[in-house]
């Protein structure tokens, strides 16, 4: 892959322009979130000391600063509270239509709403109060250097899709 104007960057990975998180355990202590996503689970951390459930997942509890946390599951289904579609002029990392919804995960959820893309969804079809569910997909892998070796770090991310 040629890099215009910067020939020595050809074939090299620059996180500066990466849309996706660096998820791998060599760089990220909450990599379990992504491991759980691979199994179709939407998770976050809960404090074993005070019980506080927080999203996104943490390394410490934001309430009592304990570092004794455990993983809990969040709802995988929700209801559209508001939806916006961008049909043109989307950034180069997305294909139009770019559909985003403010999704209500319900009163029982530790986090009441999430903002998420809605994919696998025809344009101008998603409405308020429609049911949506978590969907996990692969995103581009990136190289990491581990001692003398370079390996590719596989990645996933999540969005929501209409419940059929």
């Amino acid at each position: 892959m040629a890099v215009s104007g910067i020939p020595f960057l050809e074939g090299r990975y620059s996180p500066t322009f990466d849309l996706w998180p660096i998820e791998t355990k060599e760089f990220n202590r909450i990599h379990t979130f992504y491991d759980n996503l691979r199994e179709g689970k939407f998770t976050t951390t809960k404090c074993r000391q005070c019980g506080r459930e927080s999203y996104p997942p943490r390394v410490i509890c934001p309430e009592c600063y304990s570092d004794e946390l455990e993983w809990i599951e969040l709802p995988r289904k929700g209801k559209v509270e508001a939806v916006v579609e961008k049909l043109g002029g989307v950034p180069i990392c997305f294909e139009p239509p770019l559909i985003d919804a403010w999704i209500d995960l319900g009163e029982e959820s530790p986090v009441r709403h999430v903002l998420s893309r809605v994919i696998n969804c025809p344009p101008e079809s998603l409405k308020e109060d429609d049911k949506v569910q978590l969907v996990v997909f692969d995103v581009p892998s990136h190289p990491i250097e581990i001692r003398q070796e370079t390996i590719m770090a596989e990645r996933v991310f999540f969005a929501f899709e209409p419940v059929k």
């Binding site: 508001a82 916006v84 989307v90 950034p91 997305f94 770019l98 403010w102």
Partner: peptide, 18 residues
Amino acid sequence: SPQGIGPPPIWFALTAKE
């Protein structure tokens, strides 16, 4: 950012709808 709201119009369009 992976949800597409880096450019803010979508987020503020949701705000307007609400």
